[in-house]
């Protein structure tokens, strides 16, 4: 529990810190870094207070918080640019994973066996992840924009967007992604755990989003 709280605190602090130090470019790098981290964390399921969820949800919510900051604080043009940027970098991540697996390991190497097993047993989850998350980030951007036109309250806009998009990137993603890995009931439980955590974490990140929105621009 303590470790998770430290991770959460670090993720929360990193957003205003990076924005203050490096401005928009810092947030763009942070967005892609959290995207990469969520890909890595996808392979670890954790249990906290009897709730089972994937650790990727923490980095993924950090990613989405940066999306909200971009829409609110910066401009839509930059947001579109960042969405387009995901594609070449996701391609790069996938290529590096494939190349890493293809190389013949040395005799002393013990990592490859575990890595191969991890990839093989979660292949559907790993293939679906970039597709579903890219789609859901795009949906978040679209839905949040619609919400913003009707209401100016950050809490309502973010909560409703999270509740709606969460059905896609938590529940549907986990049901399809875990076919063959675990039974249907377990997939639903894990998906619901992620859904719940996504809503809670989005609310926890609210003060950070609102703080960055109120802050003057960082140093370029």
């Amino acid at each position: 529990m303590i470790v998770f709280i430290i991770m959460l605190a670090l993720s929360m602090i990193s957003i205003p810190l990076v924005y203050y130090l490096f401005d928009r470019i810092g947030l763009k790098i942070l967005f892609l870094m959290y995207y990469l981290l969520s890909f890595i964390f996808l392979l670890k399921n954790v249990n906290l207070l009897n709730i089972d969820f994937s650790l990727m949800i923490l980095s993924y919510v950090s990613c989405l918080s940066i999306v909200y900051i971009f829409i609110e604080k910066i401009n839509i043009k930059d947001m579109r640019k960042i969405l387009k940027m995901i594609i070449p970098f996701v391609a790069l991540i996938l290529i590096s994973i494939i190349i890493s697996v293809l190389y013949n390991q040395s005799v002393t190497d013990v990592v490859t066996v575990n890595l191969k097993r991890m990839v093989e047993s979660n292949v559907l989850l790993l293939i679906l992840y970039p597709i579903i998350t890219t789609l859901s980030i795009y949906c978040t951007y679209k839905i949040y924009n619609i919400m913003k036109k009707n209401s100016n309250i950050l809490f309502i806009n973010i909560s409703l967007t999270t509740i709606l998009v969460g059905i896609l990137d938590c529940i549907i993603f986990y049901i399809i992604g875990n076919i063959g890995t675990m039974d249907f009931v377990s997939s639903i439980k894990l998906g619901l755990g992620n859904y719940l955590l996504k809503i809670i974490l989005s609310l926890i990140f609210l003060p950070i989003i609102s703080y960055v929105n109120k802050r003057k621009k960082g140093v370029q």
Partner: peptide, 18 residues
């Protein structure tokens, strides 16, 4: 974040991967 990630209690779901 990477170091801390390996210190959290794992779930019983897909525990071998974790």
């Amino acid at each position: 974040l990477l170091i801390l990630s390996s210190g959290i209690t794992i779930s019983e779901y897909n525990s071998i991967t974790s």
